[in-house]
Amino acid sequence: MKRLVALAALIATPAFAEGELKLYNWFEYIPQELLDKFEAETGIDVTMDTYDSNEALLAALKAGKLGQYDLAVPGDYMVRIMADEGLLDTIAEGELANRGNIDPQWLDVPFDPGRRHSIPYQWGSTAFAVNRDVYQGDISTLGIIFDPPEELRGRINVLDSQGEVLTLGSIYLGIPQCTQDRAQLKALSDMLMAAKAHWASFGSDIAKDVLVSGDAAAGMIYNGFAAKARAEGANVEYAFPREGYVVWMDNVVLLKDAPNRANALKFMDFLLEPENAAAVTNYAAYAPGVLGTEPFLDPAITEAPENNPPEGQKGFFIEACDEATQRLYDAIWTNLKK
């Protein structure tokens, strides 16, 4: 009898000894080798499901998937929303051994002050790129998009996304993102309506394509897309405007009612190891939020101008406004596109 139990334990060991981990992540956002490495190091069995937007993640968790997953990877504003909706667990002091590896600039972020629920995963920026064959002047201002020079008028693509357009517009005017001030909102709306006359198209999926093909001579774009456009041969330069630009960051969050909480914390620690954080960056081509990754990073990624904002230039996260304020911004956006 004893021998039989030992045998059963032996058979069961690889799969069940250390339990499992349920990860809910964006599609194509983590290399399989990294998951294999974690499984080999810890014996924990990782199961991953994927989603394709922050809104899809929120909807799935609200519709009853909470309690089935341990970790998810929401974007900045969605961390705030999920925390507000009570979907996140709190990481207690000292629970993460590698917390000290987090780059200090990403420690006290507005969407999760003090990093109580999340750790950084990847980050990037959203501004614009300009075709240097068409326009050789100074591009370090958001005026390129919102009050464009003669050469660029009628040849500008902007992202078909309310958050990015209204936030960059607010940064350009130097007004807060979630304001209820009538004069400021009116100024924002008027400025956008005037700028729209110079825009050829609204498109997010096509943002890179129109720059490569020459349909657009300037375009609002994510830094990773701009780097790809350059790699595809377009003579485009990504700008970090002096008024500021949008930064986004995806974060690993500990979900409420996580079935394997201890394993989830182990995986967070694993992702905070510089070598592992670098592996994600080399795969996703954005930037890690962890210190000490340099020796492990692909130089093509670290040296890309799109990943190196000039010293002193400021990035802003898109803020999640409250319902009453959001209504005003929805109205401005609808009015812009009516």
Partner: peptide, 26 residues
């Protein structure tokens, strides 16, 4: 309208789409 017209203005289809897609959906 989106791919050829540049999506500069809402059409009925894109207006409805917008209400169900964004995090501000209505």
């Amino acid at each position: 309208p989106d791919l050829l017209g540049g999506a500069r203005n809402f059409m009925i289809g894109s207006l409805i789409d917008e209400q169900f897609r964004g995090s501000q959906g209505n």
